[in-house]
Design a protein around this nucleic acid. Sequence first.
DNA 1: GCATTATGGTTTCAAATGATACTGGATTAT
DNA 2: ATAATCCAGTATCATTTGAAACCATAATGC
Lengths: 152, 152
Amino acid sequence: MTRPNALKLETFLPYRLSVVSNLVSDVIATAYERLFALKIPEWRLIAVIAESDGITQQNIGAKTRMDKVTVSRAAIALIDRTLIERRPNPDDGRSHRLYLTATGRILYEQVAPKALELEARIFAAFDTEQLVSFGQMLARIEQAALEAGEVS
Amino acid sequence: MTRPNALKLETFLPYRLSVVSNLVSDVIATAYERLFALKIPEWRLIAVIAESDGITQQNIGAKTRMDKVTVSRAAIALIDRTLIERRPNPDDGRSHRLYLTATGRILYEQVAPKALELEARIFAAFDTEQLVSFGQMLARIEQAALEAGEVS
DNA sequence: GCATTATGGTTTCAAATGATACTGGATTAT
DNA sequence: ATAATCCAGTATCATTTGAAACCATAATGC
């Protein structure tokens, strides 16, 4: 008897994608926790703020697709550790602008190379062209998923 | 001032991988919840059991990398809905063998095509060759992440 | 201007997740 | 055989996560 719709989980791409992504996230989360006592949302904030000094939480959420609650909590945690600071936003009294402190910048300068090194190790097997193509595929998958999702 | 280590989050692959994967998972989880009232771990169990009748929870965990707690909970939920059933394992009294019930098989026969259709929609932009290459890259990334992780 | 509605951010609550401890059956050593 | 250890699966607990309520300020309609 042949099954009419063979759904082999091992070859089902959404499943594979999820498994591999979770594994990678886990490896990275463990490393960051151990090296810098940073959770993933926290180091993402650091990275984004380092890139875009003075950004608001709202914009961080839009950029990273992190929930605003997650962003808020990460921000508070980083402020407590004086890795970032808030200054009033002259354009909007509800929000504030986020900046790395000196300490935060020093930390960032340690985190960034470690992050890139870890990425390099995980993606070492591929040449530049493959990496570019992989990144492009991710972008197109993202686009398609967004469209598939909004149809509901 | 030039930043010595440009870590552009948008081009940082582990980050991109995580964002896209979460998005895809989310779209799929929403669809399954709406169509079949199944959570992701639950339909994974259904899919695995449909593939490997009589498998134990332990083996499901190994196959899918799901935590044994997750597997246990999903199994109990499916048993409550009489979508799967347990029979004693003659080889080992601690575990049991899992089977789809008739109802479960009927459900599976609805789920599988929907799953494949959803996958097709999300990955529609690619030709077969690209999909194969994408899957191979995932496999190699998985392998590298495992190695990077165990060094710790 | 004042009322209504929208929005940035926080808090609160409920659900999901996974580490740890536990239970009962299996394996190994003596 | 029986003690010691190990392992499948479950229960308990702490942590993480996001939805919804909430607060304060901003924008819009009248």
